[in-house]
């Protein structure tokens, strides 16, 4: 299978600190690729390099053969990459339905379209799709609530729905279950498995091994700024290098 996302020889330092060092990664189409690693391994830095928040000092990142580095966040999104943040980034002052209408409109209208005359409510098909996605993530009853009033788990579900309504080709998830209860975590795993059937490629950064092993097709282990192992979940579980660097301390 072809690699949709290809990271080649990426380096990034902050002052004297080497955050990323010779990072190479191929993410294959339709797969769920987890990136794990101890705190401070450079996981978030890597993600930020992918979405245009940080520019690497060296190296290339390509998506479907097109370079990502140097593009603005909104351009990267327009290429079909959506991101879920560690702390949910949603429009807190707006209702759930509005939260979903905005990405839906952005998908349809592009980066900018001046449409200051027509009522939003007249855009029936977008509204329908928004309602449908809310149904899918189980937030339909709350559609007219202001999203600030949601629980943390629901906020994350909403953010995920906001990404899904755009039908992304690649979904980047930064610790999608951080701070969630066991039940909420399992719900999220189920939800992510369900949307996995739609063939969206996913890159998950996660601490929780339960989540990683229930979702990932491939796991890459990042330690001290570079990948020390790639492989299937079983291989990673039994890799002594990984156990030493990371799992040993946690699982034992």
């Amino acid at each position: 299978m072809a690699a949709v996302l290809r990271i080649e020889d990426v380096h990034k330092s902050f002052g004297g600190l080497r955050a990323l060092w010779e990072v190479n990664l191929d993410v294959e189409e339709g797969r769920v690729h987890a990136i794990i690693g101890p705190n401070g391994a450079g996981k978030s830095t890597l993600l930020n390099c992918l979405i245009g928040r940080l520019t690497p000092d060296r190296g290339t990142v390509t998506f479907e053969g097109r370079p990502l580095i140097g593009r603005k966040p909104h351009e990267i999104n327009q290429m079909g990459i959506a991101r879920v943040f560690q702390t949910p980034e949603i429009f807190e002052e707006l209702t759930l339905l509005e939260n979903l209408m905005i990405p839906a409109m952005a998908k349809r209208d592009g980066a900018f379209r001046l449409n200051a005359w027509r009522r939003v409510t007249r855009r029936g098909e977008l509204m329908e799709e928004a309602e449908h996605i809310l149904e899918e993530v189980g937030l339909a009853e709350q559609r007219h609530r202001v999203s600030a009033a949601l629980s943390r788990g629901d906020k994350r579900r909403l953010e995920l729905a906001m990404c899904l309504i755009q039908h992304p080709k690649l979904l980047l998830l930064d610790e999608p279950t951080a701070g969630m209860s066991r039940a909420d975590t399992n719900n999220t795993i189920d939800l992510l498995k369900r949307i996995g059937e739609k063939g969206i490629t996913k890159v998950i950064i996660e601490h929780d091994m339960h989540v990683v092993f229930s979702l990932a097709d491939t796991i890459s282990v990042l330690a001290r700024g570079t990948f020390i192992a790639h492989g299937k979940p079983d291989e990673i579980r039994n890799d002594p290098k990984v156990q030493e660097a990371y799992l040993g301390g946690v699982e034992a």
Binding site: K72, A82, I102, A106, A111
Partner: peptide, 19 residues
């Protein structure tokens, strides 16, 4: 609605593909 989204959360708006 986009204007209110700007007030609410520009980061999210950026990563939603809006300039």
């Amino acid at each position: 609605m986009m204007l209110r989204a700007i007030k609410s959360n520009q980061t999210r708006l950026n990563y939603t593909g809006v300039n």
